[in-house]
């Protein structure tokens, strides 16, 4: 369990990190929280020639909430987000952050690293796609802002150039009458979810759905926006029937593969169940109720 030999470089700024990435070439990698990269290196499934550590770049872990926005520095740790005011205001963020892996991973793992890793089973991708999210990136050509939908291209693949880094994740605050929920079913704490479902919806005073996003995790090469499921709710009254139709549409939208977490057809059943529940929780939260939700585990 020893990584292949690599050189280690500590960047003092993102500009320096970008320069180092250029100098050290294609086999160099950025080290943020390291919760995916280090295990992969120890198992020799990843063999970077060089690591560029950005953990010492000042100010990169800040969480701020200026007007109508939430700004997460790339190095904001899951554990910090879990207890942030931002997450208190937007419950879906707490659902996600509080259940990522285990305490050790949450203390070290970062939101920027998670998005840049673009693991199909990652929690943040599915969660943040239900909100207006953009990724602020920095590279030799300067800064650019990329909508999250555009940022993740494929499994483990983003639009980032080799010498480009994530600086910040900006999330637009949803309106007051909006509610969301992220539900993930995991077998045990430290493992990736079998299926996850994220829903954010906005209601008018009569439970008519004015806006909705439904995103599925772990059941495709990237998180999947279940647009047909959204259409089942959009402009309609959210009740048992429409929720059931949306859940069925989500089941169809999933493209799961069979593995140790479950067979493909079971995962589809789980998608329907989680989407149904996530909509239910999102509706109650949109009405202003406080509801506990998040990760569920085998056994309890």
């Amino acid at each position: 369990m020893y990584a292949y030999p690599f050189s280690y470089h500590r960047a003092k700024s993102l500009a320096e990190a970008s320069k180092l990435l250029q100098q050290l070439g294609d086999e160099s990698r950025v080290l943020a929280g390291g919760q995916s990269l280090i295990p992969l290196m120890k198992m020799r499934l990843a063999r970077p020639s060089a690591l560029i550590d950005i953990n010492f770049v000042p100010g990169l872990a800040d969480i701020q909430s200026p007007n109508g926005e939430l700004r997460f520095g790339a190095l904001a740790r899951h554990a910090d987000i879990e207890v942030s005011e931002a997450a208190a205001a937007i419950p879906i963020l707490n659902d996600c952050a509080a259940g990522i892996a285990d305490v050790q991973v949450r203390n070290q793992g970062t939101i920027g690293g998670s998005l840049a890793e673009a693991d199909p089973s990652g929690d943040w991708g599915a969660t943040l796609l239900t909100l207006e999210t953009s990724v602020q990136c920095t590279g030799p050509q300067g800064e650019r802002s990329i909508a999250l939908e555009e940022f993740i291209k494929d499994a483990y693949t983003t639009v980032l150039a080799h010498d480009e880094l994530v600086r910040e994740i900006i999330v637009k605050r949803p309106p007051k009458s909006s509610g969301g929920a992220y539900l993930a079913f995991k077998r045990s704490a430290p493992v990736y979810a079998t299926v996850s479902a994220a829903v954010q919806l906005t209601l008018d005073g009569k439970d008519i759905c004015k806006d909705v996003r439904i995103v599925l995790g772990c059941v495709g090469l990237t998180a999947i926006r279940a647009k047909q499921a959204e259409a089942e709710l959009h402009g309609k009254k959210v009740d048992g029937k429409t929720i059931q139709r949306a859940a069925e549409a989500a089941r169809e939208a999933a493209e799961p593969q069979s593995d140790m977490r479950g067979s493909a057809d079971y995962k589809r059943a789980l998608v329907a169940a989680l989407v149904k529940r996530a909509i239910g929780t999102a509706v109650r939260r949109a009405r202003g109720e406080r509801v506990e939700a998040g990760h569920e585990y085998v056994g309890r």
């Binding site: 045990s188 493992v191 056994g299």
Partner: peptide, 13 residues
């Protein structure tokens, strides 16, 4: 362990 998923405290009644 990601595949074998030995039981953890969150799974225990």
């Amino acid at each position: 362990f990601s595949d074998y998923t030995p039981i953890t405290a969150v799974n225990m009644p």
